[in-house]
Computed example of a mutant assay.
Amino acid sequence: MNSSVDASIAPSGPGAPGGPPSAASREPRASSLAGAWRRFLVRRLVGLVVNLALLVVVTFVIVRLIPGDPAAAIAGEDASQSQVDAVRVELGLDEPLPEQFLHYVVGVLHGDFGTSFHYQMPALDLVRAAAPYTITIAFASLVVFLVLGLAIGAAVGIITRGDRHRWLDHLFNVGAGLVASVPAYVQATLLIAVFAVWLAWLPPAYSPAYGLGESAVLPVAALSLGCIASVARITRREVAVVLEQDYMRSARGWRLPSLRLYAKHMMPNVLTTALTLSGIILTALLGSALIVEAVFAWPGLGTTTVQAIAQFKDYPVIRAAVFVIGAISLLFTLVIDIVLGILDPRTLGDSRG
């Protein structure tokens, strides 16, 4: 019997080799994916709890590394030693460190970081008032550097595919590397000099006289520029690799429209790396926000933390602000991991065929 006859009598229904998958074959795959999601979420939630516990320890220890005595700062320069000691007793700083740590942990579990030494109000209330300002510019910067970084990196990668326009590739790498290497506070100073002082287009610092959006342009730009350069460089490299894959060559051979070719077939593979990188960049961005906010007098967690450290030695406010900044970073990273799992289930950590 020849091969054509064999083929004609070969099973071709659901579940047969070469045929569409049967319902029975789809169920294990769906079950495996659901199990992978459960294990992924359990791992991430356990990691989140562990990191929050470590954050509690770090925020307690870190204030001890700050030079200066908060009791002396509150009592004033002309206070006697007995007055300073009385303030120390009032603040509870005379207690042994283990006892202070126990009180701190119990308070954190109840959402209480203590009373501000300077403002005499709950430290968490001060942080709650400042947090929306930091979250606003951090989220805006995240959106800006992802959109622009992906767009610029993908455009350069497509234009320079196959060693085309090598001058553009070299110019891009040098320019992006230079921008990424400049600290955010230096970029903030340059932006103020150009757009606030020289051109007088934007306010140099936050002021109720200006709208929130107008005042946020320069802080967001200062936080985003270096991140845009970093994401663009990584995206350009990923695009160069993806465009040389066999499936992309086949797609180009089929003469697919450019939008479908790049948006549907290229970008999903590039997004995985870009989003993974953005989680790391976001952590550094929140750290940079502490300094950038001080440059622009932005009333966020950065300004609150700097004042608490430099002026008041306000331990409860410092602990609450650092804890909230760390918690925001952990939650943003968790959200990015979940988005990555939706885009590419392979990032869930299970090896599945």
Rank of each mutant, 00 (worst) to 15 (best):
Y104D: 06
V105H: 11
F139W: 11
N269Q: 02
N2K: 09
P70S: 04
A151G: 07
P98H: 07
V242C: 07
R29T: 12
L168N: 02
S3D: 15
F101D: 11
A7W: 13
V239E: 08
A151M: 12
L65N: 04
A7Y: 15
T276L: 15
I281D: 02
L168C: 00
Y104K: 00
T272V: 14
Q120L: 11
I318P: 00
G211V: 05
V5F: 13
A216I: 12
Y206R: 04
V84N: 03
S250Y: 08
A79R: 00
A196S: 08
I152R: 04
L271P: 04
G302D: 14
P20G: 09
D344V: 07
A193T: 09
N269C: 01
P20N: 12
R236E: 15
E244P: 01
P316T: 06
P28I: 00
L286G: 02
S230Y: 08
Q307P: 02
L33D: 07
W37N: 11
A140R: 09
V242H: 01
L54F: 12
G349N: 04
M248Q: 02
V147L: 13
H103C: 10
G211Y: 11
H110L: 12
L168E: 05
L223V: 06
V194N: 09
I342P: 08
P14C: 11
G47R: 00
V339L: 02
T59Q: 09
A188D: 01
L124A: 12
A73G: 14
R352L: 15
V63K: 00
L124H: 09
F195E: 11
V147C: 06
A129L: 14
E244S: 07
R29N: 13
V317I: 08
L212K: 10
F332I: 15
Y315L: 05
L256R: 00
V156L: 01
L282K: 00
V339S: 00
L202N: 01
L45V: 08
P28F: 04
E214L: 14
L286P: 02
M267R: 00
R236C: 07
V63C: 06
A73N: 13
G287C: 08
G341D: 12
H103F: 09
Y262P: 04
E293R: 03
K264C: 13
L150K: 00
P67A: 07
F40C: 05
A140L: 14
L271K: 01
Q187W: 11
A155Y: 01
A73Q: 14
Y133C: 05
F312H: 15
Q311R: 06
I66L: 09
I325E: 02
L93Q: 06
I228M: 10
A327S: 10
D344W: 05
G162D: 12
L261H: 11
G35Q: 11
P219R: 00
P268V: 10
